[in-house]
Computed example of a mutant assay.
Amino acid sequence: MPRIAYVNGQYVAHTDAMVHIEDRGYQFADGVYEVCEVRHGLIVDLTRHLDRLNRSLGELRIAWPMSRAALTQVIRQTLRRNHVRNGLFYLQVTRGVARRDHVFPKEGTPSSIVVTAKSTDPTIVAKKNASGIKAITVRDNRWDRVDIKTVGLLPNALARQQAKEAGAQEAIYIDHNGMVKEGAATNVWIVDADGILVTRPAEHGILRGITRTTLIDVAGKLDLPVAERYFSVEEMMSAREVFITAATSICFPVVSIDGQTIANGHPGSVSQKIREAFFDVAEKTVI
């Protein structure tokens, strides 16, 4: 069954989908995006993803390409046309097509939108959860507004490639003070010496992950204490558990960082409890 994409008002074959060469997303990374999980035919945390999209668009002064209700229907229709029951959708909104110039195009230039969807294999995630993943640390070299979910991901891509070449699956950014920030595509958590779940505060230095936000709700349901505070590389290395969170992986345990074993080198019990309870707490929207 061929994949279908939604591009600026039309559903087209994925292989034929295209945007104009002067789309500002292509030339300036002048756009934002969201990725959202689909599980058993249900969209996970759609409201929070659209809320964050609204914030990202507002921060960059990009107009919504359509109403929120209309976009919700486009997302559902794209998922249906691609027969996705377990997988994800990706949506991207840019400032639109205009003659190349650094300043914004004239008022009224329509935003551009692309929505795609694909199925994924849940067993791949299950295997990573069972064995844990490896990570490396890298110095943060991104722009200062990583709280906006923009398509400007070149530093993230280079960090992920560095991780791959080191035999790892994620790169964890470290700030100039030696404090942990976030992963190249994830938020980072530890279980500290007192058994408290710790993650960096979601100020402008990291992205406020949707899974991160829902996980705090999950922890509340499980009576697990949570602290949003800074923590160092040294504290991370000596933590009881380290794990990363993202929309398409929920909660991956990290068992090795920079070649050093974390705790006993096996996935911990806290991340397992969170993962098992996550979908009981997360919002679920029927496709």
Rank of each mutant, 00 (worst) to 15 (best):
R3T: 02
A239G: 04
K273Q: 15
I274H: 01
T214D: 03
K106E: 14
P267I: 02
I244C: 11
V233T: 14
D258F: 04
V138D: 05
G58R: 13
V233R: 15
E22T: 13
R229F: 02
G259S: 10
P65A: 08
P201H: 08
A126I: 03
M237F: 08
A117M: 09
A263S: 15
L71D: 07
V233L: 14
L207N: 07
D101L: 07
M66Y: 02
G25R: 07
K149M: 06
L79D: 06
F104S: 14
L222H: 10
N86D: 15
L79Y: 07
E165R: 12
K181W: 00
W64S: 04
Y173D: 06
I124K: 10
Q73L: 14
D140K: 01
R80F: 01
Y6Q: 02
K134T: 11
L79S: 09
A171M: 10
D51H: 07
A117K: 06
W189T: 09
G178V: 10
K118C: 12
Q272L: 12
T137D: 03
G268D: 12
T78I: 05
V19W: 00
V38S: 01
R39S: 14
R275F: 14
V19K: 04
I124A: 12
E22L: 13
D101S: 12
N8T: 08
R39N: 13
A17R: 03
V97G: 04
L71I: 13
Y6D: 01
R24Q: 06
K273T: 09
R52H: 11
A130I: 02
D175E: 09
F279V: 06
V38I: 15
T261D: 01
F243Q: 05
T78G: 05
N156Q: 12
A70C: 12
D175A: 07
V138T: 08
A227K: 12
D147I: 01
Y230G: 11
K134F: 03
C36R: 00
D45M: 03
A159V: 03
E276M: 10
R145H: 12
F252V: 06
A166G: 00
K118A: 15
